[in-house]
Structure formats: C-alpha cells, structure tokens
Simulated scan of single mutants.
Amino acid sequence: MSTEIFPSLRVVPNPADPRLTRPVTGVDQTGAPVDLRVVEERPLTIYLNSREIVTAMTIGDHPEWLALGFLCNQGMVRAQDEVTGIDYDEELETVVVRTAIETDHEAKLARATRTSGCAVGTVFGDMMEGLEGLTLPPTPLRVSDLHSLSNAINRTPSLYLEAGAIHGTCLCQGPDPLAYFEDVGRHNAVDKLAGWMRDGNVSAGDKTLYTTGRLTSEMVIKCALMGIPCLVSRSGFTAWGVEIARQVGLTVVGRMKGSRFICLSGEDRVQWDV
C-alpha cells in the first residue's frame, strides 16, 4: 500500500504480518472489554564467525540486516571486510555473520559498555575513535523536504499505527523516503537500515536519516559513522548528542512536528526555501 502512495519506498513495514503482533484482550477506563494487538518481542543471538556477540530483543523481521548492521555500526565488521555469508536459523533464533578473514573483536567485547538505549544499546570505545578526522559531505537539507518527509512518513502504514510501542527509522533522499524499518529499540531499527545499506551498497552522503527516537549520543555516533550528514527526529535531544554532532559537523533536527522543528547543529546545511 505504501509503495503505491510513495513509489520511492523500497522497504516498508508490514503491519499485517501475524508474527509481529499478538491479539490481547483487556478493559478500558470504563471497564468495557477491548481487543487490541501488541508488539511481539523475540530474542535474536548474533554471532560473528564462531564468536557469540550479543542477544537482542527484536520484533523478528529482517534478522540478517539487523545482525549485519549491528556489527557494522559497532565497528566489528569494517568497510574493507568481506562478508561471505549470513545464516539465519529461525528455530534457534540465531544469525551468524561470516567474514573471509577472522576479525579482531575480542578487545572490543572487553570494552563494551551499556548505554541509555533500549534493546541493543551497547557502544564500544572505538566507535568514538572512529569519529576522529571524520568529514561529512555538505549535502543541503531543504525545509520543504522536511515538510514532505514528515507528511510521507506519517502516512506510511506501520506497526506504530497498528500497535504502538515501537520505534521507526527511515532513510531519505531529498523529499523521498527510501527504506523504513521499525523495532522495539530505536538502535535495532537503525542497525536494520545499516545492514540493508551495506548489503545493497547504498550510498550515504546524499541521504537523511529520520528517526522517531531521541537524538542521543549513540544515535548521533551511528549516523555519523554511517556517513549520513543529516539526522532528523520528531523527538528531542540529549546534551551529549548535540555536543558530538557539533564536533563532527552533523546536522541534527529535532522536535519536528508538522512544519515546526528545532536545529541544534549543522544549520549551515539547512536551506530555508519555505
């Protein structure tokens, strides 16, 4: 349905997938019975070659892209690493990402820390190191495009509209949404997108990342390391997220509702054409 409304969308949520939600009966504020659907959560254990890396709670769609994107965003699979296979076992709820040469990730595991993110919220020390010397392209961000994207994303059928309790992330180019992913954790949704981009060799320098989640330090770091110069959210900011965005020259726009928004970093990219 959404691809008919927005032909540019290559990947869209599937709220009709029975695996992603479960029917539940309850009562409302008057005591009357109500039927609704709630989002499912499933564990997914990610392996890099023979090493178990992490178990994430996820809705269960696109497990291969989630695993690949997570490892890429954590710096455990680098741009020069050759991915030789991704094996998903639905019964065992595991994904194994295989590379041509064993990667040195034990040190990264030793430095793992827990962040404020929900679901997969681990960030490694060398993610910050990866920001050193990073230069993002001066891709313009038009205000008219922000208005178009807000309208397009709000009209796209989604699990959020069906059941709530979920985050969404959309890769956009100008006024056009390209790929829209959802999950119980905002980091999961971003990792699915990163995996899709790596798998399809999708360029990042001319894109905008839209998210429904908070603009935290980890969201800013992941967006910058993916090479996407503009990060937009309908939610708010954290101070460290803004500080890091300003350090790396990332444009961050938050509290976007309708035609209103606030830009706290990289306003030189914004073109006020409305």
Score class of each variant (00 low, 15 high):
Glu182Val: 03
Leu193Ser: 08
Ala224Pro: 07
Gly69Glu: 02
Gly121Met: 00
Leu92Ala: 15
Tyr88Cys: 05
Thr113Arg: 14
Met256Leu: 14
Arg37Asp: 15
Val12Gly: 00
Thr216Tyr: 01
Tyr88Pro: 06
Thr169Glu: 08
Asp273Lys: 04
Met197Glu: 05
Pro157His: 01
Asp183Leu: 07
Met1Leu: 10
Asp145Asn: 11
Thr113Gly: 13
Ala79Trp: 10
Val77Tyr: 03
Glu41Val: 13
Leu131Asp: 04
Arg37Ala: 10
Leu136Lys: 06
Val232Phe: 07
Arg260Met: 10
Thr21Tyr: 01
Arg42Trp: 02
Asp87Lys: 11
Glu41Leu: 10
Met76Ser: 04
Ser203Tyr: 05
Val97Pro: 02
Glu129Ala: 15
Cys172Pro: 05
Pro175Ala: 13
Arg269His: 09
Asp199Thr: 14
Leu161Lys: 14
Gln247Glu: 15
Asp126Cys: 12
Glu93Trp: 05
Val38Pro: 01
Glu162Ile: 00
Ala119Arg: 12
Leu264Gly: 06
Asp81Gly: 07
Ala16Pro: 00
Gly241Trp: 05
Asn201Glu: 07
His105Gln: 14
Ala179Tyr: 03
Gln74Arg: 14
Gly26His: 02
Val220Met: 06
Pro15Lys: 08
Ala189Lys: 03
Asp61Arg: 06
Thr216Ser: 14
Thr211Trp: 02
Arg10Lys: 13
Glu106His: 13
Gly249Phe: 12
Gln80Gly: 04
Val83Phe: 04
Phe261Gly: 04
Asp273Tyr: 08
Thr216Val: 02
Met127Ala: 08
Met256Arg: 04
Thr169Met: 13
Val123Arg: 13
Val252Ala: 14
Ala79Cys: 08
Asp176Tyr: 07
Gly266Lys: 09
Arg214Cys: 10
Gly200Asn: 15
Leu141Pro: 00
Asp273Phe: 07
Val190Asp: 02
Ala224Glu: 12
Ala100Pro: 02
Thr21Pro: 00
Leu215Gln: 11
Glu82Lys: 09
Ala163Cys: 10
Asp145Leu: 05
Gly69Leu: 01
Asp176Ile: 02
Pro175Tyr: 00
Leu109Phe: 12
Leu48Cys: 05
Ile5Trp: 13
Thr251Lys: 01
Arg22Ala: 08
Ser2Asn: 10
Ser2Arg: 11
Asp89Pro: 02
Asp81Gln: 05
Ala119Asp: 14
Gln80Asn: 05
Leu264Tyr: 12
Met76Arg: 08
Gly258Glu: 11
Pro140Tyr: 10
Leu225Lys: 02
Ser158Glu: 09
Glu41Cys: 04
Ala163Met: 07
Val252Ser: 08
Tyr180Trp: 08
Val38Thr: 09
Leu92Gln: 15
Leu178Ala: 00
Met197Ile: 11
Leu109Gly: 03
Gly174Tyr: 03
Asp191Asn: 15
Gln74Lys: 14
Pro63Tyr: 09
Leu231Cys: 10
Val38Gly: 00
Thr113Leu: 09
Leu134Glu: 03
Leu131Gln: 02
Lys257Ser: 10
Asp145Trp: 12
Pro229Phe: 08
Glu82Thr: 14
Thr216Gly: 03
Met226Glu: 09
Glu82Phe: 01
Asp28Arg: 00
Ala112Glu: 14
Pro137Cys: 06
Pro175Cys: 04
Gly249Asp: 10
Pro13Gly: 08
Asp183Val: 01
Phe124Trp: 14
Leu141Ile: 15
Leu146Ser: 07
Gly185Asp: 06
Ile46Leu: 10
Tyr210Lys: 12
Gln74Glu: 15
Arg186Trp: 11
Ala152Asp: 06
Ala189Gln: 01
Leu68Asp: 02
Val24Gln: 09
